[in-house]
Amino acid sequence: MYICDVYKSSLRFHCQRFSNNSNPEFTDEEVLTVYLFCGYCQRYFGIKEIHTFAKEYLSSWFPKLPSYQVFNTRLNMLAEAFKTLVGTMMQSFKPEDCAPLISIVDSMPIVTCKGKNRHGKVATEISSKGYCSTKNMYYYGMKLHMVGLRRNGTIPFPEMIALSSAAENDLTVFKNECVPYLNGKTVFADKIYSDFSFFNENCTIKVLTPHKEIKGEPEVIRQREKAARDLFSQAVSKVRQPIESFFNWLNEKTEIQRASKVRATKGLLVHTFGKLAIALLTYVNF
């Protein structure tokens, strides 16, 4: 019922057809519902697994279910609809206890293939080769960047989500995609987001990161400030740690990082935003 309501109000405008087949027997609402139901309730994340389960157990609900090939094609046509759905759910499901002026930012890899000498050939328009320092891993794929609203005692709630190729720098993406919408906020981040000259001069947000060594700083000053800097770094890390827990939870619930079976750009977008939609459904009942 929720998917039908959202589809009528907004999603249909992102997957309109202007052909004689503009009203297929198996509707877009049914495609979305099958995908989300099997992911959320049954924890099936492969499209083949989803189609097989629906065919064997949900035939009374979806008597017009097409073949696997057609179902897969229909899903890829809904890439923009999934993107819009995630944005709608982020607005609709926002918890009341979110801190309005405190956010946390970080990124996680979405891997189509990994290995130092591997060269991916999937979704080359939006993917590239990158390195994940947290996992000490070279990979080919994308990065998912998230700004989360802080919540006391639990994982943050997604406020903003952006995708980039694996080669793009986290700080660059944050400046271009997120900073313009975070005026007046305090943002806790990792060391890679340290660019205080930019944040102090060009915007009204306050970014706090663990202390980053200053090149050329005298050893006397470094030793004198060490205790205070360590305490500050520990405090910042304690506040931003829940976003790492969120990424671990997200991957555990949806296997979003494993995109090795994706074979097209639209398929990679469906994989990413579809898993995010499943995660948000899970978050509501977390």
Rank of each mutant, 00 (worst) to 15 (best):
D195E: 13
E56Y: 04
W249I: 08
Q223S: 13
Q91V: 09
A189Y: 04
F71S: 05
T254F: 08
P242W: 03
T112L: 15
L11V: 09
N21Q: 12
Q16V: 14
E30S: 12
Y131F: 15
T73C: 09
T134H: 13
E168R: 15
R43F: 05
T282N: 12
G141Q: 07
T282K: 13
Y40C: 02
E159T: 05
E177R: 08
D195S: 11
D106Q: 12
K143F: 03
T265E: 06
F93I: 10
M77T: 14
K48P: 00
A166Q: 08
G274V: 06
P95A: 11
K114D: 13
C41W: 05
Y68Q: 14
L101M: 12
N200K: 12
V122Y: 01
S194G: 00
K175Y: 03
T265C: 05
E201D: 14
P63M: 07
K261R: 13
V284F: 08
L280V: 08
P158E: 09
P109G: 13
F45V: 07
G274T: 10
T186P: 00
T52D: 12
N200M: 01
D195V: 09
S19H: 09
R240H: 04
I110R: 06
P63L: 09
A81K: 05
L250G: 06
N152K: 14
K83I: 10
D195P: 03
L281S: 04
P95S: 07
G153H: 09
M142S: 12
R118P: 00
A264I: 02
N152C: 10
I256Y: 05
S197G: 02
